[in-house]
Amino acid sequence: MEQGTVKWFNAEKGFGFIERENGDDVFVHFSAIQGDGFKSLDEGQAVTFDVEEGQRGPQAANVQKA
């Protein structure tokens, strides 16, 4: 798993971006967030995640709040 920081996340649209430790950004969809209840992330929040190849390039999977 990688570690990163939430760059931004739009809860209304259900997606955002995580900044990886290497400085690259990776797309995150709310469906990739682990846990119960409303799935959202806060700007600046530390997270761990896997990276999978999506239809439009790399995207975060198995996102967990650190």
Rank of each mutant, 00 (worst) to 15 (best):
L41Y: 03
H29W: 04
G14Y: 02
W8A: 03
V26L: 10
G23L: 09
K39T: 07
V51I: 15
N10P: 02
E21D: 11
G54L: 06
D42M: 14
Q64M: 11
A66G: 14
A60M: 01
W8G: 02
F38P: 08
G23T: 06
E19W: 13
G16W: 01
I33C: 04
G37K: 07
Q34S: 11
N10C: 08
K13D: 04
T5R: 15
H29L: 06
E19A: 15
S31L: 07
G23K: 14
K7E: 02
G44K: 08
S40F: 13
K7P: 01
N10Y: 07
V63L: 05
V6K: 01
I18W: 00
D50P: 00
D25F: 14
G14P: 00
R56G: 09
F17G: 02
Q34L: 11
Q45S: 09
V26Q: 02
D24V: 15
K13F: 10
Q3H: 14
F15D: 01
S40V: 13
D25C: 08
V6N: 01
E53S: 11
G54H: 08
M1T: 14
D50Y: 15
A61P: 01
T5H: 11
M1W: 09
V28C: 06
F38R: 09
G44V: 02
A11D: 08
G57D: 03
Q55A: 13
V51H: 04
G14W: 02
K65H: 11
V51F: 07
D25Q: 13
K39Y: 06
R56H: 11
N62S: 06
I18T: 01
G57M: 04
A46V: 13
E12A: 15
R20E: 02
G16L: 01
Q3E: 10
Q55D: 13
Q3S: 13
Q64R: 14
R20G: 05
V6R: 00
V63G: 01
Q55G: 12
V6G: 01
G4F: 00
Q3L: 11
F17K: 05
F49C: 01
G35C: 06
K39F: 06
V47A: 02
G23N: 11
F15N: 02
G37L: 06
I18Q: 00
R56A: 10
T48P: 00
E52V: 15
V51L: 11
E19H: 15
G44Q: 05
A32R: 05
W8M: 05
F30Q: 06
T48R: 11
G44T: 04
F9P: 00
Q64K: 15
V6L: 05
G44R: 08
F49P: 00
R56S: 08
G37R: 05
I18V: 04
Q45K: 04
F9I: 04
D42V: 13
V28R: 00
V51W: 06
H29D: 03
G54K: 08
A66T: 12
K7G: 03
N62H: 10
N10D: 11
E43H: 14
T48Q: 09
E43R: 15
E21F: 11
Q3N: 13
A32C: 05
W8Q: 03
M1Q: 14
G16R: 00
Q34T: 12
Q34F: 10
D36H: 13
A66I: 13
F15V: 06
Q3K: 15
V63N: 00
V26D: 00
E21S: 14
G23S: 08
F15A: 03
P58W: 10
D36Q: 14
E21M: 11
E52R: 10
E12P: 08
K65V: 14
L41W: 04
A32H: 06
N10V: 05
T48N: 08
G44D: 05
G14N: 03
D50R: 14
S40L: 09
A61S: 12
E19I: 14
V28D: 00
N22S: 12
A66M: 12
E43M: 15
F27W: 07
F30P: 02
Q45G: 07
E21V: 14
K65Y: 10
K65E: 07
E19T: 15
D42Y: 15
F27L: 04
V28I: 07
E12D: 13
K13Q: 09
P58C: 06
G57F: 05
G37I: 06
Q3F: 12
S40Y: 13
F17P: 00
A32Y: 04
A11C: 06
I18L: 09
N10S: 13
K39H: 07
F27N: 02
R20M: 08
E12G: 12
F17N: 02
A32S: 10
P58I: 11
Q55M: 14
A46W: 11
F27H: 03
Q64H: 14
F15R: 02
G44H: 07
F17T: 03
G14D: 01
T48C: 07
F27S: 02
E19S: 15
P58A: 10
I33F: 06
A60N: 00
E53N: 13
V6E: 01
A32F: 04
E2Y: 15
K13T: 06
N22C: 08
E12L: 15
Q55F: 14
A46F: 13
E19Y: 14
V51P: 03
L41A: 03
I33T: 02
Q34D: 09
Q64W: 12
T5P: 02
F38K: 09
F49M: 05
H29C: 05
A46D: 10
G35N: 08
G16A: 01
G14S: 03
V63H: 00
E43Y: 15
F15M: 06
Q64V: 12
G4N: 01
E21L: 14
Q59M: 09
E52Q: 13
G16P: 00
G35Y: 08
D25P: 10
N10L: 08
D42G: 12
G4R: 00
W8E: 02
E52L: 13
A61W: 08
I33D: 01
G35R: 04
Q34N: 11
H29I: 04
V51S: 04
V28G: 01
E53P: 13
N22D: 11
G57C: 04
W8H: 04
A46S: 13
G54D: 06
A32L: 03
D36L: 10
F15P: 01
L41D: 02
K7C: 04
L41Q: 02
F38T: 07
Q45C: 07
G54C: 05
E53R: 10
R56N: 11
G54Y: 06
F9T: 03
I18F: 02
K65I: 14
E19K: 15
W8Y: 09
A46T: 15
F38Y: 12
F27Q: 02
A46R: 15
V28W: 02
A60F: 00
F9V: 04
G16K: 00
V28K: 00
V26K: 01
K7L: 06
G35W: 10
Q59Y: 15
Q55E: 13
I18M: 02
S40T: 15
F38Q: 08
A11M: 15
W8N: 03
E19M: 15
Q55V: 14
A60W: 01
K39P: 07
N62Q: 05
Q3G: 08
D42R: 15
E43C: 06
F15G: 02
I33Q: 02
D36C: 08
